[in-house]
Design a protein around this nucleic acid. Structure first.
Lengths: 114, 114
DNA sequence: TCCCATCCCTTGTATTCCAAGGGATCATAT
DNA sequence: ATATGATCCCTTGGAATACAAGGGATGGGA
């Protein structure tokens, strides 16, 4: 019961990706792996979800990509947070905090409907 | 800054509605109003979102609807949680808790990517 | 040599929220 | 009386975005 990864909730992916990039440039696979590990295997960003999202963020000017080499001498594409992306990250973290609070208020409510 | 209602995150609406109905039968408008009030005006379920959602839940057998009268002598449709709906509410509350925890772990992470 | 982990990606499909409407009833204020 | 705002029910069309299910290439270890 409750061991598998949960379905991603639409709209929460961007902030996860942006957060992962605030450590510095990363390639896609590393983004996915980091989110999965840090979330305790609860959030699993499939590659078919990840790459379109990265391209979307790139089109929006929130990240910029550049081909390079990994430590293991593989050709990889590094994604890096832009200034705008950094600001967006802050906004979205705040939005998440508000949203999460609101959800908890509703789910933990003791006030009956009038 | 941050005074307005947030856009609903797709996938979080059902549990909000189910929760509102766990108090007993309610009509749609009251569901919407209760969520808005208890969330501190942060979550605003527009009617164009609410009613399709209620019908969806009804099709899934999680709620059942019945026409009746309100306190104010108006014709209203009362939505009531079914047994299955009550179980689903429990599941989704648990899912939300796990999801929310995972998000907080990622957003509050101190562990750098490897 | 074979396989697994690593890396990049695309194309449907389904879901579901938002915007923007329409329509009816009732209490209250003008 | 009549206008206004809150209460109540609903639908349609469009947009966004996650999922499923693929394809392809590389490198290291068994």
């Amino acid at each position: 019961m409750g061991k598998d990864a949960l379905t991603l909730i639409k709209g929460t992916l961007d902030v996860l990706i942006l957060k992962s990039l605030h450590w510095g440039p990363l390639h896609g696979y590393a983004v996915s792996r980091w989110i999965r590990q840090v979330s305790g295997e609860v959030l699993d960003v499939q590659e078919g979800v990840l790459y379109p999202a990265l391209h979307r963020l790139e089109r929006q000017g929130l990240v910029q990509a550049e081909w390079g080499m990994s430590d293991t001498n593989r050709k990889v594409k590094h994604y890096e947070l832009t200034e705008a992306g950094s600001e967006r990250l802050g906004d979205q973290e705040q939005d998440w905090a508000r949203y999460s609070d609101a959800m908890d208020k509703v789910l933990g409510a003791t006030q009956q409907p009038s």
